[in-house]
Simulated assay, not measured.
Amino acid sequence: MKTRVVGYVRVSTQGQVKDGYSLAYQVEEIQRYCAHHNLELLDIYKDEGISGAKVDEDDLAIERDGLQEMLSDLKWRDVKYIVVLNTSRLWRADMVKVLIQRELRRNQVDVKAIEQPSYSIYAHDPNDFLVNGMMELLDQYQRLEIALKLSRGRRKKAQQGGYAGGRVAYGYKATKGQKTLSVDPVQAETVRRVFDLKEQHPSWSLAQIAAELNQEGYTTVQGKPFSKVQVKRMFMAG
């Protein structure tokens, strides 16, 4: 029986495309590696950050939907490895590395890095001990800060009918210069359909609801198919 794996590819700057790290190149290398090592490649998750938006090279200032979806799917996908060209596709900063590795360990998944054949997240790294300690302190600090400042202020604004900033829930839109949100009619129709599907098929998983949305022709704001992560966000916002 073949070992089941998923792949992950990422391009964060236009320069990386020129330097040979294009998504297509990474995909081909992963497919070739899996075929050569008799691995069953279930899926390849992708993130491309070259749309013109400023990208933080430490991976701390951008959202990577492909990475988040992959980490979420590990809870139900029975895979042993994530295959990448090299570990810099997953992380660059030590803090990001520790956070991702936490999720991988929870799901008993390791990393296969094509350009780093001996790499394993379970190999001892002295730097990780220090960073883990720092992250635990940072987690505590952020929880206190959010509890004492951010959440209180945003909750008060929301209670007064105002827009408190941050990500706008799917189904609404924020107009520049205004302090209130308005309903986006197209997105609102998608949200209604999500709740209808859940009511009609209470046993369906998030992935099944996402698949049905895609089958019916619904798309995200970016015109892409829905994932289970995005469906979950709609339920949480509702």
Rank of each mutant, 00 (worst) to 15 (best):
V6E: 03
V6A: 07
V6G: 01
V9K: 02
Q14D: 14
Q14W: 04
Q14K: 14
G15K: 11
K18R: 12
S22E: 08
L23I: 14
L23Y: 01
Y25E: 15
Q26T: 09
V27Y: 09
V27F: 09
E29V: 07
A35D: 10
H36N: 14
H37S: 03
H37L: 04
H37G: 00
N38E: 14
L41Y: 03
D43C: 09
K46M: 14
G52D: 08
A53K: 14
A53P: 00
K54M: 06
K54I: 06
V55I: 12
D56A: 11
E57I: 08
E57N: 09
D59Q: 15
L60M: 11
E63F: 08
R64D: 10
D65W: 11
G66R: 09
G66A: 07
L71H: 08
D73M: 03
L74I: 10
K75T: 15
K75Y: 14
R77A: 08
V79Y: 02
K80R: 13
V83L: 08
L85W: 13
T87H: 09
T87N: 06
R89T: 07
W91I: 05
R92D: 08
R92N: 14
M95Q: 11
M95I: 03
V96A: 13
V96W: 06
K97A: 12
I100E: 07
R102C: 13
R106H: 13
R106Q: 15
V109T: 07
D110I: 14
D110C: 14
K112D: 06
K112P: 00
K112N: 04
A113P: 05
A113F: 10
I114M: 04
P117F: 14
S120P: 02
A123H: 07
A123W: 04
A123Q: 11
V131D: 05
V131I: 13
G133T: 03
M134W: 06
M134H: 05
M135F: 01
M135R: 02
M135E: 11
Y141I: 01
L144D: 12
L144R: 10
L148Y: 00
S151G: 00
S151P: 02
K157W: 02
G161M: 09
R167G: 01
V168H: 07
A169F: 03
G171E: 09
Y172I: 00
G177V: 04
G177K: 00
T180W: 11
T180V: 14
V183W: 00
P185S: 04
A188D: 13
T190C: 08
R192C: 00
V194Y: 01
L197G: 03
K198A: 11
E199C: 01
H201T: 04
S203A: 08
W204Y: 13
S205E: 08
A210P: 05
N214S: 04
N214L: 10
E216V: 10
Y218D: 06
T219V: 15
V221Q: 15
P225N: 12
P225W: 08
K228R: 15
V229G: 02
Q230E: 14
R233E: 14
R233V: 05
M234K: 05
G238Y: 11
